[in-house]
Design a protein around this nucleic acid. Sequence first.
DNA 1: TTGTACGCGTTATCAA
DNA 2: TTGATAACGCGTACAA
Lengths: 340, 340
Amino acid sequence: MSRTTLKDIALELNISVSTVSKALSDSYEISEATKKTVQEYAKKHNFHPNKLARSLKIGKSNTIGVIVSNISNTFVSQILDGIQIASQQTIYDIIFMQSREDERIEKNCIDVLRMRGIDGLMIAPVSSGSNIEELKELIKARIPVVIFDRINHKLDTFKVGVNNFKGAYDATQHLIQQGKRNILHITGKNLGVAEERLNGFKAALSDANIPFDEKHYIECGFNSTVDLDSRIKEIIIKEFIDHKNIDAIFGATDVITTRTLGILAELQIEVPTEVAVIGFSNTQIAASLNPALSTVVQPATEIGEIATKKLIDTINQTRPIHEFETIELPTQLIVRKSSL
Amino acid sequence: MSRTTLKDIALELNISVSTVSKALSDSYEISEATKKTVQEYAKKHNFHPNKLARSLKIGKSNTIGVIVSNISNTFVSQILDGIQIASQQTIYDIIFMQSREDERIEKNCIDVLRMRGIDGLMIAPVSSGSNIEELKELIKARIPVVIFDRINHKLDTFKVGVNNFKGAYDATQHLIQQGKRNILHITGKNLGVAEERLNGFKAALSDANIPFDEKHYIECGFNSTVDLDSRIKEIIIKEFIDHKNIDAIFGATDVITTRTLGILAELQIEVPTEVAVIGFSNTQIAASLNPALSTVVQPATEIGEIATKKLIDTINQTRPIHEFETIELPTQLIVRKSSL
DNA sequence: TTGTACGCGTTATCAA
DNA sequence: TTGATAACGCGTACAA
């Protein structure tokens, strides 16, 4: 048995295909009687209209494409949750794809989604300039694009993310208020948001008249977890154990912060008595950690929801938009035991 | 500017649409010269064939639908990773949807995916009988279905998951070997895999001649995290603090296990000296926890990969399959500090 | 109120 | 080697 079509119903009921089509969409042209017959038949035989054919016909797919780096990242999956929530009550379905931090894969994702006839795209781009031509083309083809999270991307369009400067500033200031003066900032290489977070870190130091020490700013590659681990370990051993000149660590990302905690435990360095720790992190188990981890939390769900709403608004706009808005949501500093 | 079509190219190059189509698919019927002209023109003008039209025509969408309960769950997102990896090198694209543990939403997901013309479906069902009629219909319509993770579902089809009995048995046995005899098993309500895990737990106790105490088996509702937390806390206070008759806890899921750790920290109960902890958990930061958490790890990525391969195989099978296989992968017991 | 005819963009068959 | 034509399933202007 293959799938039921309008034609099948028409044949069975001895009426025309268009009558069936109209009856199912509750058209005013059709009599209540036939509507009822058709709709009941459809329900009984579990008729599902073919979206492909429908989209092809009306030139809209009611689909939104989403490209993220990696689904298996707490922060990202929380954003996806928000996207799902916002799209739930709309006519739009969501298709997710992963770029895996690779511009070529990202290009492929864009192509695939485009071929699928998405009505709009939401993307957290790999880098600040990645696939900018492709994205421009989408917009030219009147497929709106919203950029989220990595809002330093150069494309001129709607953007939704957080105020990374302030988030980093607040975290650093908190450590300073706890009497820490030798703070190590660990961040990632080629991380779009890193620069603003570094700026916030520096600004907080500067405002407290603490000189910025180059040695207390470390960039880690992200090639593999092993690399990341050994790199972090190396620097902690050097700066904390050998030179004894660190009293706090500020991690720039979810992964860095949690890995750091693990390494400190492994090296039997007591948190927060020997070293205080705080970092950007959206892991739900921050409170379950021992010691409970102080974090800069990004409003992930909200980012997803706002981005989705913005995109849908833009899709439904009849005339092209030329004035774009960048929304920077505030982060939230949650102080727990690891930095007290 | 709207999107380019075969027609546009044909018009521009003064050849027929079918010639363009054949040239682009590198047909042997077309001369090298025209092929070259067409392909170059297509590349230059960034032509993307319309997949909707293509799928409609050939009756295959080269799309696989995936339904999971909740993307923002470590274990689930690891499975999705595996699915992505396995599909990467194939012609198939993946569409994810979330059921949020709700059978009606799950039904809606199935309908949407079906309307989208998926060639196959992978699903971790909400419950053991959820939407069984819908799924049967899919199979009747020759759209293969593979069930993963929640392999206790009653539908007769391919299933890929883990051996929950053995995973639970191993964890419990390990605790017993550490000299623990009063083990609390915390599990979830309406959790498909709970029963097998409970059986494994009981079997290990029985094999060590330890009687099973009803009071040491707790089911938690999953309505909200707050409920879960307070329920776990309540039972720990009663059994550990008041009656002092627990020396170990075995958590049945990722969420339960990590929440338990948090609550123990909050109550200032020392792990593992006062209470040993082990549990099913796929969180990547188990090693980063303090104390490092002993876990029963499920081969999530592998589950995703195998399920995907099985599904694609089935899709490409010309004749319907009537003998289905259930693959139960082994779990891995990783002993860390929390249970030593 | 219902039916006919056409087109969305593609592929496949067959004729030129 | 190329092109005309039909068809996939649906929606809609127009005719009946």
